[in-house]
């Protein structure tokens, strides 16, 4: 270190070259980085871009094989207008909102209570339960949808939106509980003591201290629950058959494809609007969004 500094000041010429080459190397690395980024941004963004372009085209323009599929010559909002005024798209959107909001609320109540108990109030089997919660999170829905089909049928909930509200928490609760155990555990124990000295009981402690202090974690968990509920596809696909009960993920396909007729303009408009809520949440709450979906491996 000191020798480098010394040579640099006393004999600048040879070191100058070295420094210059490092700088040049660094510049090339940076250029390489930007080229790689550009390539991947194009790869990642062209499907949504093409979605947008198609959604702005009339059926005639889409069907014209001589046109350029990547540009729109006569942009129109016809597809959006038709989706929002005719057919069941609005019902699907409403159903998605109902299911998602209800599931998020249920999830947050269940996981906040459980995470607080598991993080702070040790009881018989609590450590095993915490591990069990994490393992449950790793159970994919493709493993359980067939027995659940029977169970939902037995409960008389087949083809009923309510079944989604009953089942989605299996996908959201374990992970939300798990990450909130992590957030709650990181709150210093001194705060508990202070609260107990002030005469607070455990529920007051949860409400007045843990929830406000762990708010970023709670927000991340909420976003996770929202994303998972909004995007769920297999359960509605398996358990819902009539259009008025469907949510967006299955409704678009089932209503806009009739036999061999694909209304691509409308499908893309519908898909884009269905992608909008998670994209908006992401745009405004990026850091919480990322925390919510990656915390499983980084928090413990």
């Amino acid at each position: 270190m000191s020798t480098t500094a010394a040579t640099e000041s006393t004999a600048p010429l040879p070191m100058y070259h070295a420094a210059g080459s490092i700088k040049r190397e660094r510049r090339w690395a940076l250029i390489g980085a930007y080229v790689a980024l550009a390539v991947f941004v194009i790869f990642f963004m062209f499907p949504p871009f093409h979605m947008l372009i198609t959604s702005l085209k009339s059926s005639a323009e889409i069907a014209d094989l001589n046109g350029n599929p990547w540009i729109v010559s006569a942009p129109t909002l016809q597809n959006y207008r038709e989706l929002l005024t005719e057919g069941n798209y609005v019902i699907h959107f409403r159903n998605s909102i109902i299911v998602t909001l209800t599931v998020v609320a249920i999830t947050m109540v269940i996981s906040t209570l459980a995470a607080f108990a598991l993080a702070r109030m040790r009881f018989w089997g609590s450590a095993a339960l915490a591990t069990g919660v994490f393992l449950t999170y790793l159970v994919p829905e493709t493993l359980l949808f067939i027995p659940l089909f029977q169970i939902i049928g037995g409960l008389g909930l087949y083809n009923n939106l309510g079944a989604m509200i009953l089942i989605y928490p299996t996908l959201t609760v374990p992970f939300c509980t798990w990450i909130m155990i992590g957030y709650f555990s990181s709150i210093p124990k001194e705060l508990d003591e202070a609260a107990l000295i002030d005469g607070a009981n455990h529920l007051q402690m949860l409400w007045k201290i843990f929830i406000p202090v762990a708010l970023p974690g709670i927000l991340a968990a909420t976003i996770f629950a929202f994303t998972v509920s909004w995007a769920q596809f297999l359960y509605p696909m398996a358990f819902l058959v009539s259009s008025d009960q469907m949510v967006l993920t299955v409704g678009i396909v089932s209503d806009l494809i009739r036999g061999d007729t694909f209304q691509w303009g409308k499908i893309m408009a519908g898909a884009l609007m269905a992608a909008a809520p998670p994209l908006l949440v992401y745009a405004f709450l990026m850091d919480y969004y990322i925390a919510g979906l990656t915390a499983g491996a980084t928090k413990g």
Binding site: L37, F40, V41, F44, M45, P47, P48, H50, M51, T227, W230, A231, F233, L248, T249, V250, I252, V253, I267, M268, A271, A274, A275, P278, L279, Y282, A283, M286, Y289, I290, L293
Partner: peptide
């Protein structure tokens, strides 16, 4: 922000594209 977009769109929706 841009590179994460594919992961934010519900796969059932982006697969349509």
């Amino acid at each position: 922000g841009m590179l994460l977009v594919p992961w934010v769109i519900p796969p059932a929706v982006s697969t349509l594209a």
